Amino acid sequence: MSITQQYALDAYRARQHGEPVPPAPGAHDWQVIRELRDRHQFHAVLAGRPAHGRIRRVLGRLLRSRPRPTC
């Protein structure tokens, strides 16, 4: 059974019992991603690390340390 079929079955059952219909699959995906990011930032602060900008800082450091090609 696919996710869409399961959702349709759950929505049908909820309507039959007079309950609210469950949210559609994927309706809250971005909210979950934001909450995960916030959690990682919170744990970084507790560990004494910078809370944001770590990836850009590391990539910038890697790009600056590479030898530049000479023409």
Rank of each mutant, 00 (worst) to 15 (best):
Q16M: 13
R37D: 09
R66Q: 11
Q31G: 10
L59S: 01
D38I: 03
E35W: 02
I3S: 12
A24S: 13
P25C: 02
I3C: 07
H52W: 11
Y7R: 06
H28E: 12
T4A: 11
P22W: 11
I33Y: 09
H17N: 12
R39T: 09
P50F: 03
R49V: 04
P20R: 15
C71W: 15
L36F: 11
D10W: 10
Y12S: 12
P20D: 15
H17P: 00
L62R: 10
P20V: 08
I3A: 13
L63E: 15
A27M: 10
V58Q: 04
D29G: 10
I55Q: 11
G53Q: 06
A51V: 01
I3N: 12
A14Y: 00
G60K: 03
P22A: 04
G53K: 06
D38Q: 14
A51W: 01
H43S: 04
G60Q: 09
C71I: 15
T4F: 01
P67Q: 02
E19G: 00
G53F: 08
G26F: 08
F42N: 11
P22N: 05
H40W: 08
R49I: 03
G48V: 05
A24G: 05
A44M: 05
L36M: 12
R56N: 12
R13N: 12
I3E: 15
Q6K: 14
G53M: 08
Q41G: 15
R66I: 00
G26D: 05
V21Y: 02
L59R: 05
L62D: 01
R64Y: 04
P25K: 07
H28T: 09
R66G: 01
Q6F: 03
